[in-house]
């Protein structure tokens, strides 16, 4: 879909900060509130803006730490529907937070989130590997999240180093 430069500008502003008031966006792109509201509505309707998720570092919240694993899955594609059918059977599990079809040594890349390693192990052995057409799985547990969706986690030393006033 071809978007105007103003629409692209609005997308980029929202991508960076979706809490920014419509009025402020309007002044940043030299438009008015009404137009910006309409544009955002259109972008949502077109599923160009899909949702406004909040990126949370759960590891910082006691009792809420998640275990995350990335699983490489080899499957045999099905005649007629290729990988889509297997993919759908997998992504319907709520534990699966992302799923991609890949080129290379394996077919599907899955991210799974659970409360514990046991929970994920159970998912892999009981649910995933028993699905018809799944040939093999390789599970990698994530140890630390440094950057996710372009956002760096825990920027400890990221403060403004500039002096308060400079010429």
């Amino acid at each position: 879909m071809k978007l105007s430069s103003e629409e692209i500008e609005i997308l980029k502003i929202l991508e960076e900060n979706n809490k920014i008031p419509v009025e402020t966006i309007a002044s940043m792109v030299l438009s008015n509130e009404e137009t910006v509201k309409k544009t955002i509505q259109k972008l949502e309707d077109e599923k160009i803006i899909i949702s406004y998720p909040t990126l949370i570092d759960w590891t910082k919240v006691e009792g809420q730490e998640n275990v995350v694993a990335m699983i490489d899955v080899k499957v045999t594609p099905k005649r007629g529907v290729g990988f889509d059918d297997v993919a759908e059977r997998i992504y319907r599990f709520p534990e699966v937070s992302s799923l991609y079809l890949m080129s290379g040594a394996y077919d599907l890349s899955i991210t799974v989130e659970g409360k514990s390693m046991n929970q994920i192990a159970a998912f892999v052995s009981e649910k995933l590997s028993t699905i018809e057409n799944v040939i093999s799985t390789t599970t990698h547990f994530m140890l630390k999240k440094y950057k996710h969706d372009g956002v760096v986690f825990d920027r400890g030393n990221d403060k403004d180093r500039r002096m308060v006033i400079t010429p």
């Binding site: 500039r162 002096m163 308060v164 006033i165 400079t166 010429p167």
Partner: peptide, 26 residues
Amino acid sequence: PSGIRKFFDLAAGMKDVISLGVGEPD
């Protein structure tokens, strides 16, 4: 002496200042 200096000294001792006084990129 640069007139900027005076404000630099004044602001430097304060906490939680929002600075619009910086002549360089953020």
